[in-house]
């Protein structure tokens, strides 16, 4: 634990909050129950936040949820589009998380290799 790091946290947290609040086009939900955390969901979340900030993407809202009953697929990340379409990514690691931001959230192209199930259309 480094006190200097902690001091920088404040500023960073504010930035991340601003990022989160300005979002509209996509909503990212990271499963942050015990099994998700044990599988590395926190690092996935942090990577996505850092990557969104780095790329200056502001149209994305990031949220967390508790256990979702997909224990063996954790860490799970769900992307909800403003239009209602949902994509679920399983066994996400920081590298896949970066891909999701670069491809799906920035360019609108799904990362098929990490997506599971069928995309649900609500209309």
């Amino acid at each position: 634990m480094n006190l200097e790091q902690l001091k920088q946290l404040k500023e960073k947290a504010q930035k991340q909050i601003a990022l989160r609040e300005s979002g509209k086009k996509y909503r990212v939900v990271v499963s942050m129950g015990t099994s998700g955390i044990a599988a590395g969901a926190r690092e996935v979340m942090k990577t996505m936040l850092d990557e969104l900030e780095k790329r200056g993407i502001e149209s994305v809202e990031v949220a967390v949820t508790g256990e979702i009953g997909m224990v063996d697929a954790e860490p799970v990340v769900r992307i909800e589009e403003a239009g209602g379409e949902k994509t679920t990514y399983a066994k996400v690691n920081p590298e896949i998380a970066r891909q999701i931001v670069a491809e799906h959230l920035e360019k609108g192209r799904k990362v098929q290799s990490a997506a599971v199930g069928k995309a649900k259309e609500q209309e």
């Binding site: 946290l9 947290a13 991340q16 990022l19 989160r20 926190r42 979340m45 942090k46 936040l49 990031v62």
Partner: peptide
């Protein structure tokens, strides 16, 4: 990372 996660979400 724990605090960032909690604050951002």
């Amino acid at each position: 990372a724990t605090l960032i996660t909690l604050c951002a979400a």
